[in-house]
Design a protein around this nucleic acid. Structure first.
Length: 584
RNA sequence: GCCGCCGUGGCUAAGGGGUAUAGCGAUGCCUUGGUAAGGCAUAGGUCGUGGGUUCGAUUCCCAUCGGCGGCUCCA
């Protein structure tokens, strides 16, 4: 497709989707200004899966407005306006925008570097400050749809005015747009909040917004993940500890949390003293380290803790299990000598990769650097950040830098996983910390007989078990692999003639340690299969007169709809146990 | 927290100024049926909560709580 660039040239573009979408956003802005004169424009870029435009309109928009805007956009496309581009000198550009009342655009120009060319795009009566490129005619936007309305702060700063953002998407063809809309529908079916309810995994009640309840099936998932986690950590020579949920405020003053994290902390009074509900496990870990004198020979000490932390998150940010107010971190604190830092970081990176690979997750890595509100010397921060970079480089891991997003006590490597819509959520993290050991005066005796200060690593693999379960649910669309499935087998009797045999088989499965359910209801077999299918149970055993007569076989149906035929019960049990043991 | 939308029996929804409707589910009875929904019947709702307007509110208005989509923030 040919595109019009801001220097006036027309070139073939490789990447036409962003061009189409950006042009669609201009058409939307034009439609909005036709329908609602006086609406001011902020920014309107193409994004990964569509486009948006931020508007400043008195009273905002209603969902019905979207239909009207869409209709007007279709008219503009039909008018097939030609796009033109031109540049203006800075002062002239500002005057022009001011004359049109485009205050936000004026600000944008004022913030451009002195020598930057200031380009405009024009289609019909509509003009917008824009770097392009754009389609040549409005007709190039063949397939689009407006999707949602949202508030968005001007320049993403909550101190600024809240603007009205309209999201939409556009594609090269109607077919691709349809395919995308279908994908959104499919994604809704995988949403862990929906599946969590349908499969009886968890519930979040009005009585505790952001505080999830785990239901029996979800609890099996959680415990199974924890079993797996414990096995790995034993193999990797971790100890496990558990520290209290509520600790005296003095501890949090000492750790720096009170100064840097109190907005997220819950407090309570005990015997007239302030206590805090822990938002992190590290201070407790510090105290455990100090319970004994430590030698350089003891290091590294890898101290794991499945800690339940509580954090006050703003109400609008809560999101199923992805964003909650209390969650279990599969935490660990590693106390090391300076010469052990890199090997320990690498060990954790490998462990995270092992776990994520096990589930077939795609992930990306971010390096988060020093935030504004933080503690410690520049030198410590630089050393810590370099240590993380070195480890990443040595391991050949690609990463993006997330400036200023580190913890208040140190920089971190973050591992992000995708949900069903491709949104990413931070799960694993490795944080290097020189501050806590100083604040808590941690020591070990070196080979020289002198006291030295250890360096500490905070790390999680799952991150939050709750969030991880949410991701897992969407990743598998609720069809958990056998080893994780809350119910692995459901025994279905065809009629009451096989009730006894079904009960006997169920008892044997249970005795073999298989998670099973027995359906001896008087429903028809088709109905029972449907129920088991909707619960996404991996194996269904269909037991009727044939199996009863034989007395040793079970007929196996998988949730994929596959009929494995008649198997000896003992062979079926061996198979399920093997799959469970192999965690496949 | 902010902007917009939403809140009807266990679930999914329809409705709308005159105390409400369906499907699924539940329960009971009939049916004993071989790979995704057998039939009949019954029960279940102070329409999120609190105010207001009105002869009358679930419906309109205000507040509040909760949810959804974003923004900000973050595991």
């Amino acid at each position: 497709m040919k595109a019009l660039y801001a220097d006036g040239t027309v070139k073939e573009t490789e990447d036409e989707l962003p061009v189409i979408r950006h042009t669609a956003s201009h058409i939307m802005a034009q439609a909005v200004q036709r329908l609602y004169p006086g609406t001011k424009l902020a920014i309107g870029p193409a994004i990964d899966d569509g486009f948006y435009y931020d508007f400043d309109k008195e009273g905002g928009f209603s969902p019905e407005d979207l239909d009207a805007i869409e209709a007007e956009m279709k008219k503009i496309i039909k008018e097939n306006l030609k796009l033109e581009t031109y540049t203006l000198p800075r002062a002239e550009a500002i005057d022009y925008l001011r004359s049109r009342g485009e205050d936000y655009k004026v600000q944008l120009v004022e913030d451009l570097p002195e020598d930057a060319p200031i380009s405009f795009y024009k289609q019909g009566e509509f003009v917008d400050l824009c770097a392009g490129p754009h389609a040549l005619y409005t007709k190039a936007v063949k397939a689009f749809k407006l999707l949602s309305l949202a508030g968005a702060y001007w320049r993403g700063d909550e101190k600024n005015k809240m603007l009205s953002r309209i999201y939409g998407t556009a594609f090269e063809s109607k077919e691709k747009l349809e395919a995308y809309l279908n994908m959104l529908e499919e994604a809704k079916k995988r949403d862990h909040r929906k599946l969590g309810k349908e499969l009886g995994l968890f519930a979040i009640m009005e009585e505790g917004p952001g505080f999830p309840f785990f239901l029996p099936n979800g609890m099996v998932l959680k415990n199974t993940l924890i079993d797996y986690w414990r096995g790995l950590h034993t193999r990797e020579n971790y100890y496990e500890i558990s520290t209290p949920i509520i600790l005296n405020q003095a501890l949090w003053l000492r750790s720096g949390h009170w100064d840097h994290y109190k907005d997220n902390m819950y407090t309570t009074m005990i015997d007239d003293e302030v206590y805090c509900v822990k938002p992190m496990n590290c201070p407790g870990g510090m105290l455990v380290y100090k319970t004994e004198p430590r030698s350089y020979r003891d290091l590294p000490i890898r101290m794991g803790e499945l800690g339940l932390v509580h954090r006050h998150e703003k109400s609008g940010t809560l999101h199923g299990l992805f964003r909650v107010r209390c969650f279990t971190q599969d935490d660990a604190h590693i106390f090391m000598r300076p010469d052990q830092v890199e090997q320990e970081i690498e060990g954790v990176v490998r462990l995270i990769d092992e776990v994520y690979s096990k589930f077939g997750f795609k992930y990306h890595v971010e390096l988060s650097t020093r935030p504004e509100d933080s503690m410690g010397s520049d030198e410590d921060w630089e050393n810590a950040t370099n240590a993380l970079i070195n480890a990443l480089t040595t391991m050949g891991l690609d990463y993006v830098v997330n400036e200023g997003d580190g913890a208040f006590y140190g920089p971190k490597i973050d591992f992000h996983l995708e949900d069903c819509l491709g949104r990413t959520w931070q799960c694993g993290t490795i944080q290097l910390d020189f501050q806590m050991p100083q604040r808590f005066e941690l020591e070990y005796t070196g080979s020289d007989g002198e006291k030295h200060r250890p360096i500490m690593l905070h790390r999680v693999i799952f991150g939050s078990i709750e969030r991880f379960i949410g991701i897992l649910t969407e990743h598998y669309a609720g069809r958990f692999p056998v080893w994780l499935a809350p119910v692995q087998v459901r025994v279905l009797s065809v009629s009451e003639k096989s009730f006894d045999y079904a009960s006997k088989v169920a008892a044997e499965l249970k005795a073999a340690g298989i998670r099973m359910e027995l359906d001896n209801s008087d429903n028809k077999i088709g109905y029972k299969i449907r129920e088991a299918q909707l619960q996404k149970i991996p194996y269904m055993l269909v037991l009727g007169e044939k199996e009863t007569a034989d007395g040793t076989v079970v007929t196996v149906r998988t949730r994929e709809g596959q009929d494995l035929g008649a198997l000896k019960l003992e062979d079926f049990i061996a198979m399920v146990r093997q799959e469970t043991a192999d965690r496949v």
